[in-house]
């Protein structure tokens, strides 16, 4: 069966162990979590989770239904077309070219965030596909640490 990538946003009530319910559901039913981000929604008692997952059409459909079934789930948003962004922090040795790194990061909506006596820390924020390209391109500057933030997404309409 064809495996598809899907980004699902789940709006949940901000309550004790709600994250455990969601991750527990994925673990118990053998679903994949590729990336996961969670934060409260301002001025509400809700939180928004963005889950990047993979599965066949039937599995994706089940994931959505099972998420709906959880009592604290307010809404499950799933579209093939979402505006998606992911942030990445990357640390380079100080002896790499500051200017080249800066130029690379700017091409991916980012820049240099911090320079210390030993390291350069950069940030980029872009679509997941481009993030992959960035990580590949950045290899030639010998990054010592990469922190991916996970995908966040919003419906276009």
């Amino acid at each position: 069966m064809k495996v598809e990538r899907r980004v699902i946003s789940v709006i949940v009530q901000n309550e004790h162990s709600v994250l455990a319910r969601i991750t527990g559901l994925f673990a118990a039913r053998g679903y994949n979590i590729e990336t996961l981000t969670v934060a409260p929604i301002p001025d509400s008692n809700l939180s928004r989770l963005t889950i990047e997952t993979k599965g066949s059409v039937r599995v994706i459909e089940q994931i959505i239904k099972q998420l709906h079934k959880l009592i604290p789930t307010f809404k499950v948003i799933e579209h093939e077309e979402m505006v998606e962004k992911e942030m990445v922090l990357m640390k380079f040795p100080i002896n790499e070219s500051l200017a080249n790194i800066q130029a690379l990061c700017e091409a991916y909506n980012g820049g240099i965030m911090n320079v210390s006596s030993h390291h350069i820390i950069t940030m980029i924020a872009d679509e997941p596909k481009r993030v992959k390209h960035f990580i590949e391109a950045a290899q030639k500057f010998h990054p010592v640490e990469i922190v991916r933030g996970g995908v966040v997404a919003m419906e276009r309409e």
């Binding site: 162990s17 455990a20 009592i71």
Partner: peptide, 16 residues
């Protein structure tokens, strides 16, 4: 207890 019962209940509560 709620960690254990999560997978075998419709819903559960730890009362605070």
């Amino acid at each position: 207890a709620t960690g254990i019962s999560r997978g075998c209940t419709k819903h559960n509560y730890l009362v605070r």
